[in-house]
Design a binder for these strands. Structure first.
Lengths: 111, 111
DNA sequence: AGTCTACATGTAGGCTGTCTATACGTAGAC
DNA sequence: GTCTACGTATAGACAGCCTACATGTAGACT
C-alpha cells in the first residue's frame, strides 16, 4: 500500500478503531492491522504523533494506566471526536464516489 | 474536498483522463471537473508540475501545438503509462477495500 | 548472566506532493 | 482599454506520513 495514499485518511482510521472502545497506541496499531486483514502496517512514528494531534484538536482524550508493569496511554473518543468521525465517514463516501467516477472511464461505444 | 485526500491519487486521475485521448493541461483540468460532477477543482499549480513529473517518469509524452494563436502542450499516454494506469486502478480498488473495511465498523450485536 | 522477542511510547528529521500566489502571454467581447 | 476565458509555468509554503533511533519493562530460553 502506497504510504501517500493514506494522507488525509489517517484521522478517519484512528477515530474509527476508537469508536467502540478506548485503546492505547500499540493496540490501535494491532487493531488497524487486524481490521484491514493484515494490509495496514502503520508505523509507530505515524500513529503516536497523530494521536497527540487528535488529542490537541479535541477529538481524543487520554489517560495513563499501568498494566503488567507496562505503562499505557489509553485514548478515547470525545463527543467532538464522535461527531468528527461521522464527518470523516461521509467525507470518505464522497471521496470514493468522486475519484471513482473519474477512474471508472467507461468506454462509451459511440452510438 | 480535503486537498490532502488527493495525495497519491493524482497520478491515477491524470492518467485516467488521458486514457481515451490526448489532452493539454487546461483541458485536463476541465475534464477532471466535468467527470467528477464539479467536485474536483484541481489548481494549475498542481496539474502542471504533476504532468511534467509523469512525463519525466515515462508515463506521458508531450508535444507543442498552436491552436487559435494559443500554445498548448498536449500530453498522451505512453505504453508504460497505460500499464501504470492499470496498476493505479487495482491499487485504488485495494485502497478503498482496505480503508473501507476499517471504517465500516459494523456494530456487532453481542450474541 | 545474557540474549531475544513482545510489549509500549516517543521524537527528530527527511521526503514529497499538493496548494497558494504570482507571472507571463493571446484572443475576443464589450 | 478593460475584462474574461484560454493557456502554461514556477517559487515557496505547508503538512502529514515515513524512517530511524532512543528508551524502557516483562518473560522465555539458553
Amino acid at each position: 500500500m502506497n504510504p501517500d495514499a493514506l494522507r488525509g485518511h489517517m484521522d478517519a482510521l484512528l477515530l474509527s478503531v476508537l469508536e467502540r472502545e478506548p485503546l492505547h497506541g500499540y493496540a490501535i496499531i494491532e487493531a488497524l492491522q487486524e481490521r484491514s486483514g493484515g494490509a495496514l502496517s502503520v508505523p509507530t512514528g505515524t500513529v503516536y504523533p497523530a494521536l497527540r494531534r487528535l488529542e490537541r484538536i479535541g477529538y481524543l482524550s487520554s489517560e495513563w494506566a499501568t498494566v503488567g508493569g507496562r505503562k499505557r496511554r489509553t485514548y478515547r473518543l470525545t463527543d467532538a471526536g464522535r461527531r468528527q468521525l461521522e464527518g470523516e465517514r461521509s467525507a470518505w463516501r464522497e471521496f470514493t464516489t468522486v475519484i471513482g467516477s473519474v477512474l471508472r472511464a467507461e468506454v462509451r461505444t459511440s452510438g
